[in-house]
Structure formats: C-alpha cells, structure tokens
C-alpha cells in the first residue's frame, strides 16, 4: 500500500469514527474536564445565578473534604460495599449462570427470565417491596431466619445491619445482568473440556477451578471491573431504602456527593468528590487489569 493510500484510509477511519468521538467528547470529556475545573472553584448556588460570583479557590475544596469526617465515613462505607459487594455479586451471578446453563435443569428459558427480571424492574418499586421483606416484625426475611432460630434483625434500622441489607438488595437487583454475560461466556466453553476433566477424575470444584474459570477468565475480569465501578457509584439503593441512615451507615461516596452538590449546593465541593471518586475507580481498575495480566486472563 502506498503512503497516499494509507493516508486516505486513515482519513476514512477518522471520518467514520468521528460521530462517536464527538458524542464521547461532548458528553464525557468536556463535562469531566469542566468538573475538574469546577472542583478548584467555589461554584455554588450564587455562582449559578451569576457567574461573576465564581471564585478560584485552589485546593481548598479538597482540603475541606479531607478534614470532613462524613467524607471519610462515606469513603469507608463505599469501600465496604466494594470489598463485600463485588465478590458477593460476582459469585452470585456466576452461580446463577451455571445453574441456568446446566443440562439437568428443566424449563431453562423460564429460569433465565425469572432470574433476569429483577434487573429490569423499577428500582423504587422493588425497594418498597424489599422494605417490606426486610421489615423487623412482619418481614419475610426475618421470618425465614426465625425458622433457624435466629432472632429478628432490624435490617434497615441498625447501623450494623443496614449495609448488608442494602448489599442483599443490590445483589438481587443486579446479578441478572452479570448472569447473562456469564451465561454467554459459559456457552462458549466446549462441553468436551468438561468431559475430558471428568474422565481425568476431576470433581465438580476442580472442574470449576481448572476448566471453567480459566476458560471464562476474561469475562470474570469484565464483570468484576463493571461491578467495582457500579459499587463505587452506589447511590439510588441507599437513597431509596435508607437515605444514608441509620447513623450515616449507608452514606456512600456518591450519596455524599449528591448531598454536597444538590442539598447544600456546594457544587465545587461536589465536583471535587466526583474527581476523587474517578481516581479511586481508575486506580482499582488498573490494579485489577494488572492482576488479570499476571494471572493470564488477558
């Protein structure tokens, strides 16, 4: 190919990806840069009314955040959500996918729909249902636990139980989506591999560890990255279920940002939170990619 041809092809490539790039620039790059810029200002409700009130404040927003105990509380809560929630949701999704992928299960399409349904239901409506399920005195969850002799738990009213309660709700709400991704991956694993391992004498767990998981490792990575990002950005569930309570035990970083920005109208400070959150997600994702590369998943 001559240099001229090459240039023409490159131009065509740019032209074809231009609409998508423009959309990404308009709706992602520009707002991201703008919010980074705003995080160095005291952008608030007065500045909204008149941009003349906008003042450049350097790192003051960041300094204040670092001194704010609620920020650290929200950071801590979010880390718990990530640390507990990601393995929980990934494992739950994978288990569900293996269930609906197994040959002995009857009515597989029905199961698939039933397990995927939570993901496409309205969050607010299901949150109401879950508040009933988690009710201390009349809830089904406590009733089931009572069958095993476990005393009633004040799921949404106790600072120790509220985070697990939200996690259970989030897990139930989101595993269906991951399940579909896992299911697609599982269906590409040749059945002969599993059979060869059976002949080699591998039990269920060994086959999972040495045959299935390595075969779907890239998908496990993808789902983990998506779930980590999702957990860092947890907002709607605590907002609807507990409004961050009790005793701020379910204030997540995004919930904190929402309050900073839209309750107290400290938009500059909110932008600073958003930028720190972005750095956190970026850092964790990079670590995940590094680990995956070392493990040979990609």
């Amino acid at each position: 190919m001559s240099a001229a041809d090459h240039g023409r092809e490159a131009r065509a490539g740019w032209a074809m990806s231009a609409p998508a790039l423009a959309a990404i620039a308009a709706f992602f790059v520009v707002p991201a840069i703008a919010s980074l810029f705003l995080s160095f200002t005291d952008f608030d409700i007065y500045a909204l009314a008149d941009a003349g009130n906008l003042r450049f404040v350097g790192f003051r927003n960041y300094e204040r955040l670092i001194e704010n105990p609620l920020f650290w509380k929200a950071m801590g809560n979010t880390l718990w959500f990530v640390v507990l929630g990601v393995p929980f949701i990934v494992a739950l999704s994978l288990f569900a996918a293996m269930l609906v992928n197994s040959r002995w299960l009857k009515w597989r399409p029905v199961w698939r729909v039933a397990l995927f349904a939570p993901y496409v239901t309205t969050l607010v409506a299901t949150a109401v249902v879950w508040r009933y399920l988690l009710h201390t005195r009349y809830g089904l969850v406590n009733y089931l636990l009572s069958l095993f002799g476990i005393a009633p738990i004040d799921w949404l009213g106790s600072p120790n139980a509220s985070l697990p309660a939200i996690l259970i709700f989030v897990g139930w709400k989101t595993f269906g989506y991951n399940m579909i991704i896992f299911l697609a991956a599982l269906q590409t694993v040749p059945r002969e591999l599993d059979e060869a391992a059976r002949i080699d004498g591998a039990g269920w767990f060994t086959r999972l560890r040495h045959v299935t998981l390595p075969a779907i490792a890239p998908t496990v990575l993808l789902v983990s990255v998506l779930t980590v990002a999702g957990m860092f950005q947890l907002f709607a569930e605590p907002y609807v279920m507990t409004q961050g309570g009790p005793a701020q035990s379910t204030v997540t970083i995004l919930y904190f940002m929402y309050e900073e920005g839209f309750k107290w109208w400290n938009l500059g400070s909110g932008a600073a939170v958003a930028f720190l959150l972005f750095l956190c997600i970026l850092a964790v994702t990079l670590v995940q990619l590094k680990l995956a590369k070392r493990g040979g998943a990609i």
């Binding site: 040749p190 059979e195 002949i199 490792a217």
Partner: peptide, 21 residues
C-alpha cells in the same frame, strides 16, 4: 461407575485440551 473409575481414556474429535495449561 464414574468415568474416571472405569479405566478408560478418551480422545475427542476436538481434542479437548485444556487451553490454559
């Protein structure tokens, strides 16, 4: 008996080699 207890070995059409090993 389970496949592994039968004293057989099988070669598959697709070879079924473990790709990560």
């Amino acid at each position: 008996l389970a496949p592994s207890a039968r004293g057989i070995a099988m070669v598959f059409q697709s070879y079924a080699l473990y790709p990560h090993l």
